[in-house]
Design a protein around this nucleic acid. Sequence first.
DNA 1: ACATCTGTTATATAATATATATAACAGATT
DNA 2: AATCTGTTATATATATTATATAACAGATGT
Lengths: 135, 135
Amino acid sequence: MFLTLDLNSEIPIYTQIRNQVVMAIAKQELKEGDFLPSVRQMAADLGVNLHTINKAYNILKQEGFLTVHRRKGVVINPTDKYKAEKEYYKNLKEQLEIITSEAVCRGLNSEEINKIIVDIIKDLNNNERGRENEC
Amino acid sequence: MFLTLDLNSEIPIYTQIRNQVVMAIAKQELKEGDFLPSVRQMAADLGVNLHTINKAYNILKQEGFLTVHRRKGVVINPTDKYKAEKEYYKNLKEQLEIITSEAVCRGLNSEEINKIIVDIIKDLNNNERGRENEC
DNA sequence: ACATCTGTTATATAATATATATAACAGATT
DNA sequence: AATCTGTTATATATATTATATAACAGATGT
């Protein structure tokens, strides 16, 4: 399982799960058509409540990342289901305004921030390799 | 006042205030030695409770952005008080990993993300001009 | 047909976070 | 001495987060 929880984190469990699924999709550890465990199964695996998983899945569903089927479980959507749209860009910009402002305050410039992002994307692609036998 | 609140937002009021102060520092609308209104004054201005402002100020204090004096009110710190340090970099990277992963999922590449950040920083500097007679 | 596993929905409960309302204290200013 | 500071302490209300049970209906496998 690619999921690890920090129960002491201020970030809610359902948000941690949502974030890690998105990161797994970005790394292509999860691809179109891949299945996630059922809410009950993942709840058992992680030792949390069914509703916590259900909330995370419903957010991901609402965001377009996955589709939910009875019995089968949860399926990662094809990428065209979660293409960037107007509302997403607005939200992204708002988030980056806050983060970038603090970074600028603390003396970083756009090149340094860009380097961090380039490195993150590089890492996403590195993790892509050598992981064929998972899930 | 450079502060506007969205009471319907899911973002807590004290977090909105914290973020807007950081953005104001980034825009240099607030500079070293500038004063912020007292907790009571800003609470009255914004129509919220004293403790909500106090919480925002204490977070900003803890983050190094300002110092609190009795009577005088609240003073923006010199920039060396909130230089980027190890812990901040770790936190910044964690935040950007999540945001960048989602952006990559939605089809953006590092150039496009970088452009958004460059534009944000450009806007921060634009707002710097023509605002001499504020506060 | 039947049992079983799905997601889903509904309640209830508890703990924590957020926000407000008052009050009081101690330091600093005027 | 009066006033304005930040600070601290309670109390209260609401919302969020997380858990605990239970039940329902659709789909699957036997």
